[in-house]
Design a binder for these strands. Structure first.
Lengths: 156, 156
DNA sequence: CCCTAAAATTTCAAGCTTAAAATATTTCGA
DNA sequence: TCGAAATATTTTAAGCTTGAAATTTTAGGG
């Protein structure tokens, strides 16, 4: 017997749309909570955390353009965020020898300390928010997301 | 024999963090593409599409506060977006009989036509962006997302 | 009826984001 | 060496977003 719910092209499209909305809801819910925690508990924001996280991963610093392409945001965007971090002594700009156009952004010692503190909390928040996922769930979810990400990489 | 990669609490936390970053990357990639399509092909934005989508689902209209809680955004936010849609003749505000504080936002006929056009394209874009997911993948992914969403609903 | 608290919405200030224009510098072919 | 094209960054204008303050209206106890 033919299964009555055999997915036609039409219903697969609708099913993908529904899972997309669910994906969006999951991510927005977590992101909202992370933003709230950063703001209320640490007086900072997610974009600032993202920039600090990128700079922490590259101790020698990143050129402004490398930073913006790494984070997939516009150049003008990181300019403003690095400006603020610099004003607060968490980051600094270093001239690139041999190219007076470019500057490398780096964390200061104070910035590294502040980031380590944030990063530990961030991992804890995520661990709690994803408590519903067992190790097996994590692996399976990861594999499914790879199906989506594989397609995104082709398109660049 | 014990598997050598038995996940301790420590590594489960790291695995959850990695899958979170992957989730974020998947969603941001898709969302960026949708925003680009809306802007370049239809001269509109995702927040406007979201508002129109909500209003389309409620033909009798939604109070401003119902709209903002439905979309999980601030009151002030929807005020500005409905203002713009109203200026363009896509939405309108209707007084609520018996409560002069409240107003109901609705789509105009023009707004409904514009939304139907957008919605069809939107479904097509998503269907293409999620081409890597088979019907089975969609169901499995959906189930895993439910593990995340279940937890979010408890917390309200 | 009065008047305080609650409710619905808008206004506001601050920050994020983008695309495009503007600046400054480097590269490299003629 | 000159100058056009490419590169690195900042500036700018416009829109989104939020939380908090302000405004208007309603509801309910005294």
């Amino acid at each position: 017997m033919k299964p009555s719910q055999a997915p036609t092209g039409e219903t697969l499209s609708k099913a993908r749309l529904r899972v997309w909305l669910k994906l969006l809801k999951s991510v927005n819910g977590i992101e909202t909570e992370i933003r709230r925690n950063l703001r209320e508990e640490h007086g900072t924001t997610l974009p600032r955390f993202d920039v600090m996280s990128a700079l922490a991963r590259f101790p020698d610093g990143l050129k402004m353009s490398e930073l913006s392409s790494y984070l997939k945001v516009s150049n003008g965007n990181v300019t403003g965020i690095v400006d603020k971090l610099t004003e607060e002594g968490l980051a600094l700009r270093v001239a690139v020898p041999g190219d007076r156009r470019a500057q490398v952004a780096r964390l200061t010692a104070k910035g590294r300390v502040a980031f380590e503190e944030l990063a530990q909390h961030h991992e804890d928040w995520i661990n709690t928010l994803l408590e519903g996922l067992s190790a097996g769930n994590v692996d399976a979810l990861s594999a499914h997301l790879d199906c989506i990400l594989d397609r995104q990489m082709e398109e660049d």
